[in-house]
């Protein structure tokens, strides 16, 4: 009994490493196909519409809501020390350094990542990918690469929009509702946030998360078992794996580069 449990653990570990290796090979293949001519601009724009434009609503609402909560919580804490004019710095630094890129990645993983996995997974089920191969079009070239490129392009843009809307939400609560001086909110914001440390780090994070979410979603869809249950499993595991690895990678980037 114990030996069986041990064997199962071992098999899981081997499967995990196997999966990781295949994901890396998949990523290399995507990178390779992305460089090849012809560059599929038409497909890229369509995917940017699905991933970027259609995510705008959820990003916008979440951004303003997160900014408003930050403003309220920050104000309630800071006012005890008589330091409510630092509200701009608190809201700005939290959004730019952490919340902007991370929450954007989580939301995009849930909204666009799951859709990508389900779409590619159902293409596997209905043998559309085999159909493409028969026409000697590589599925990674035509289906996967545009999605990955679009996700990488959209993530920093969405993250920046999230941050700006969050700053607006914090301004709304802090300045308009609670009466913090608008000058000190904006000055605190501008003095606390620096380009080389904060804004650049934020962009690097969003970029890395874009690669991460896109690869996990397309890989899970691509390797989905050809059944209805397989598609649903691929969708679920995309959201779980992409979200958890986003959080872990976020810690690693922060710890290694201090952004």
């Amino acid at each position: 009994m114990a030996s069986r449990a041990l064997a199962r653990t071992g098999r899981r570990a081997v499967d995990f490493v196997h999966d990781l290796g295949r994901l890396t090979a998949f990523g290399m293949s995507v990178a390779n196909w992305s460089r090849r001519r012809p560059f599929r601009l038409r497909r890229l724009i369509d995917e940017m519409y699905d991933i970027g434009v259609l995510s705008l609503a959820v990003i916008g609402v979440s951004g303003v809501a997160v900014g408003m909560v930050l403003g309220l919580q920050g104000y309630n804490t800071l006012v005890r020390f008589g330091a409510e004019e630092s509200l701009g710095a608190v809201v700005g630094l939290s959004l730019v350094r952490e919340l902007g890129p991370v929450l954007t990645a989580l939301l995009v993983a849930g909204r666009a990542g799951s859709a990508i996995a389900a779409e590619i997974g159902s293409m596997v089920v209905t043998e559309q990918l085999d159909g493409l191969r028969m026409m000697s079009i590589h599925p990674i070239d035509f289906v996967v690469a545009p999605k990955v490129l679009a996700m990488i392009a959209c993530m920093p843009l969405l993250s920046s929009l999230f941050i700006v809307l969050g700053l607006f939400g914090g301004y709304l609560v802090g300045v308009v509702f609670l009466g913090v001086d608008p000058g000190s909110y904006l000055t605190g914001l501008e003095e606390a946030v620096e380009f080389s440390e904060d804004v650049l780090g934020s962009l690097i994070k969003a970029f890395v998360f874009g690669i991460l979410v896109a690869l996990v979603a397309t890989y899970r869809g691509f390797t989905a078992a050809p059944s209805a249950a397989g598609v649903s499993a691929a969708t679920t595991s995309t959201v779980v794996v992409a979200s958890v690895s986003t959080l872990i990678v976020d810690y690693l980037i922060t710890a290694l580069w201090g952004v």
């Binding site: 724009i45 940017m48 700005g92 843009l157 920046s160 501008e190 003095e191 946030v193 804004v199 650049l200």
Partner: peptide
Amino acid sequence: RDLVVGLFVLAGFLALAYLSVSLGGTT
């Protein structure tokens, strides 16, 4: 659709420019 994607990219870059220049600029 192309126009909407273009607007989205433009808005994203504007947000990015605001963060870089206005917030990230020198004190």
